[in-house]
Design a protein around this nucleic acid. Structure first.
Length: 261
DNA sequence: ATGGTTGGTAGCCAA
């Protein structure tokens, strides 16, 4: 099963790119972030015509996440399922069950950006990470194939930025942010891309400004994290960076994993 | 060099 994640920065502005990439890459499941759409305006019809079931958790103007799947999506939850609620639409999870294959529980997560540091936005980011860690700890006890995919808005390591020194004052690279990510990973998750390639220079985001793409001034902030049961099934992982060179691109590109049945 | 670009929305806010 091929599972991808992509922050598309507006589903309405990106629908042609999305459909084009779906035809080329043909993923089984796609975790979308920053759809910037309410549920009613999400283009479920054209995505259904393209062969995908849809589960959406949207809001007006900002944020918003969705799951697309060639297989049925069951047991859908919107928002982090810890009962605490959230004014911002940042998490959706469902069980994807192929007819003739093992099921995978898959989340599409859009972590808070957290900038600027020293404000309530950064506090919200750290609180959100803490909630995710607590929920993940409890959920890993189920010993299922679990895939936590999304835009983490976290640069885990200096290797994950072309110019790490320019990110020192940024919420994406703060010691508290990286510490929260390390605690999450220490629960026993596997970073799928790093499991197959530990080289520098692997990025998923290039800013629109100052010619970042042309200079390859990128960062790696979109991650696919696997439970031990899912990691046992890991075949391959990759980043579709060619999508960043298309007309009207998102500032993020798709990241994907292939899991054996 | 504290810049500049995009999306959603209707003035700026978020990234």
């Amino acid at each position: 099963m091929r599972i991808a994640t992509w922050n598309i920065n507006g589903v309405k502005a990106r629908i042609d790119n999305l459909l084009h990439w779906l035809r080329e890459a043909s993923p089984d499941v796609v975790c979308l972030q920053e759809i910037k759409s309410v549920d009613e305006a999400f283009p479920a019809d054209v995505l259904s015509d393209a062969g995908y079931n849809v589960a959406v958790h949207g809001q007006k103007g900002f944020n918003g996440v969705a799951l697309l799947s060639k297989h049925p999506i069951e047991d859908v939850s919107r928002g982090l399922p810890d009962g605490d609620g959230d004014e911002q639409a940042r998490f959706i999870i469902g069980l994807v069950a192929p007819k003739d294959g093992a099921a995978v529980r898959i989340a599409s997560a859009y972590m808070p950006n957290g900038n600027p540091i020293g404000t309530e936005k950064f506090t919200y980011k750290l609180a959100w990470m803490k909630r995710l860690e607590a929920w993940t700890r409890a959920t890993l006890a189920e010993e299922e194939s679990l895939v936590l995919a999304g835009d983490y808005n976290i640069i885990p390591d200096p290797l994950d930025a072309k110019n790490p020194e320019v990110w020192t004052g940024d919420a994406l690279f703060q010691p508290e942010t990286r510490g929260a990510y390390r605690r999450l990973m220490a629960l026993g998750l596997t970073d799928a891309v790093r499991a197959v390639d530990d080289n520098a220079g692997i990025y998923t985001f290039w800013d629109y400004q100052a010619g970042a793409w042309q200079k390859n001034n990128g960062i790696r902030i979109d991650h696919i994290l696997l439970s031990p049961e899912a990691a046992d099934r890991l075949v391959e992982a990759g980043i579709d960076r060619y999508v960043r060179a298309w007309e009207k691109p998102s500032d993020h590109v798709p990241v994907w994993v292939e899991l054996r049945e």
